[in-house]
Structure formats: C-alpha cells, structure tokens
Amino acid sequence: MMLLPGLFNYWLVVVLMMIGFYVVIAQGNLVKKLFGLNIFQVAVFVFYISMGKIEDGTAPILVDGEPVYTNPLPSVLILTAIVVGIATLALGLALAVRIRNAFGTMEEDEIDAAEADPS
C-alpha cells in the first residue's frame, strides 16, 4: 500500500488543516483564532509545495544533464500566498489590538456581551 507513505505529505496537510480549522471555530480568543487561521493557511502552502515535488527531483536550476527537477511554479505561487497570509495575519492582529482597546477584552463571548449591551 502506497497510501500512507506515498501520500504522507497530503495526510499531513489534512491533519494540519483540520487543526487550524478547529482552532478558528472552537477558540474564543481572537489571537488564538488568528493563529488557527494561519495554521490553516500553512497547510495549504504545504499542499502546494508537495504537489510540485517530484521524487528525486533537484532544485529547479538549469544545469546540463539533470533533467528531473521539482516544478518551481507552485513554490512561486506559495511565495505570493505567504505574503498574502502575512498581510492577513498582521491586519488581523492589528484589529485584535484595536478591539482590545475598544472593548477591554479579546474573548469573543465577552465582546458579544458588550455588543448586546446598547451603551
């Protein structure tokens, strides 16, 4: 069975993704939510890089007599995605700070209670 070892990376992706997703949903703390979101995104990065990898492939540098190399495109794409991810995380953290200043808390249930309060 190639299932487990051959698709090891993909299993990792699924596990990471689920962990990230769970944290986003289950955690009440805004910063923890953001970390969960980041784990979720990282899982996708791993997914992209895994699919570009070719067994025994080298780095994609053009040299004579080395025809097998890893597909560079997914790595490049993920570079872009990482930038987007960092921007998202930074913005999310900035919002979390502003929320903490405005509400005095970063726990979701306490914020909900404060919002329901009309004052």
Binding site: L30, Q41, V44, L95, A96, I99, A102, E115
Partner: peptide, 22 residues
C-alpha cells in the same frame, strides 16, 4: 466600535473563503 468586530469576523470568514478557493 462594533465596526472593529465586524471587520474581524469578515476577515476570518473571508480568509477561510479565499483559502478554500486556492
């Protein structure tokens, strides 16, 4: 101040949506 939490929630949901897309 509720604009902040609205933006934060949108950020979480929007990012999940975009990640699903990629």
């Amino acid at each position: 101040r509720r604009a902040l939490t609205a933006a934060f929630r949108y950020l979480i949901m929007g990012t999940i949506g975009a990640t699903f897309y990629i």
